[in-house]
């Protein structure tokens, strides 16, 4: 994310990266960041809590106006819970899925819809068109 933010910022568009992994963000050092000290996967707020999501987003967006130094990180004033027990178990087991190199749909209906809309198939699987041989 930070690499992308840097390139966008460099063409004159201000960027802000939301993050729940402070050390990873500090390493890549994007122009502006807003850190939410939550478990990964809920970077923009808790599921099913629109008022909280709005409050988090409003705080984060204020960073566009208030952060004045390149590489600044705004610490958002929210915590997941009082115990913070989640921090002990975060990333202590590998739960990642296999890195398959075909499109991964949420449901079979989506696959059918996409295949009907793109009869030539996935552009990445097909690969770039080859130049004609001389």
């Amino acid at each position: 994310m930070g690499l992308i933010a840097r390139q966008i910022e460099a063409v004159g568009i201000a960027t802000l990266c939301m993050t729940s992994a402070l050390d990873i963000t500090r390493a890549v050092n994007p122009p502006r960041a807003a850190f939410l000290d939550y478990p990964l996967g809920q970077t923009a707020g808790k599921v099913g809590e629109p008022a909280l999501q709005r409050a988090i987003m409003a705080e984060a967006l204020q960073g566009f106006a208030t952060l004045k130094e390149p590489g600044s990180v705004k610490m958002l004033p929210f915590k997941w819970d009082d115990s913070e027990d989640w921090k002990r178990s975060a990333f202590t087991t590998d739960t990642r899925l296999a890195r398959l190199d075909t499109p991964q749909y949420q449901c079979a209906e989506d696959r059918a819809l996409a295949e009907a809309a793109s009869p030539d198939g996935c552009a990445i699987c097909v690969g770039p068109a080859q130049p004609p041989a001389n």
């Binding site: 966008i8 201000a14 939301m18 993050t19 984060a60 566009f64």
Partner: peptide, 8 residues
């Protein structure tokens, strides 16, 4: 004018 980047 602005880009907001949100990782999962």
């Amino acid at each position: 004018d602005l880009a907001l980047l949100v990782p999962a």
